[in-house]
Design a protein around this nucleic acid. Structure first.
Lengths: 152, 152
DNA sequence: GTATATTGTCAAGCAGCCTGACGAAACGGG
DNA sequence: CCCGTTTCGTCAGGCTGCTTGACAATATAC
């Protein structure tokens, strides 16, 4: 009763684009989080990326993070709660605005952020080793351009 | 209180790979489902792809679909319920095995499946128009090879 | 100085999956 | 042929990751 499979398609031709993209994404985040765990950064999940990716060096407000991540304040608040419990992030009341709280990476949070970046670079490097540097660079550029194309 | 954003990264360099892949996927499925809707195929959601993608022409059992999609029987059962309500699929008891039910695409289901395939080809074609045929073919091949690389 | 907007939190709900347990039907060995 | 085991689909309940709605505390504008 535990799912596993994934095989070829039933119908004509080739795997649909969304399936390909999804599978590639899943592979990437699985590698990333496994290696984060191995490096001692336990408990970090994919969703936490919304904080790590968008937080400013000097810290950011909840509202700002929510806006950047395209999520609600409530959703981000829960992520921050979790990361705070795990010791990656800390909240401090903004002295300029006592409604707001500044969310800042702790030492460990900074280390985790750096580790993630390093691991992702390494993943790309290993793919480049098998498929060629230019192929991987092209993959990245093509996706960026597709995304740019759509947001016109 | 409705999220929207998505902007550049805070930290160094470039967008992380998983974010890129996710965004590309989201763009694709959004285009796909919008155009499916325009073509009169209402109510189809991303998750329904697990049925449309893996169902055999003569129909398939629930268990088979679940296995192929990498989901539980229960998850697929709910998808099939929905698609049945929408008229894309029908259940028939297997005469060979009265425990089992054969899930088969209706006329409308077949039309929807064909439309989806056609739209996806068209999306790729339009990207190729802007970025070049070779770039899009390469994108596809590179992702396929990355996926193959990981499942060694 | 008071109306209005903004910040973060509490509560509740929905989607999309999961695990567990089950009756009905098929299968396999004696 | 009968009975234990396996396989089919379903029912019930739970978890995760998000949503909308409502709110007290605080800041801002006129």
């Amino acid at each position: 009763m535990t799912p596993s499979g994934e095989r070829g398609e039933a119908g004509a031709g080739q795997a649909p684009l969304p399936a390909l993209l999804t599978q590639a994404k899943n592979i990437t985040i699985e590698l990333l989080h496994r290696r984060l765990g191995e490096d001692g950064f336990e408990g970090i999940r994919y969703r936490h990326g919304s904080v790590f990716r968008f937080i400013d060096e000097e810290g950011s407000r909840l509202t700002v993070l929510a806006d950047r991540a395209g999520l609600t304040k409530q959703a981000i608040a829960e992520l921050v709660d979790e990361l705070e419990r795990l010791g990656y992030v800390e909240r401090a009341t903004d002295p300029k605005d006592r409604r707001a709280k500044i969310i800042r990476l702790t030492e460990r949070g900074l280390a985790g952020q750096a580790a993630a970046a390093r691991i992702l670079v390494d993943i790309e490097r290993r793919w480049a080793l098998h498929l060629g540097q230019d192929r991987i660079a092209m993959l990245r550029r093509t996706m960026e351009e597709i995304i740019a194309l759509q947001s016109e």
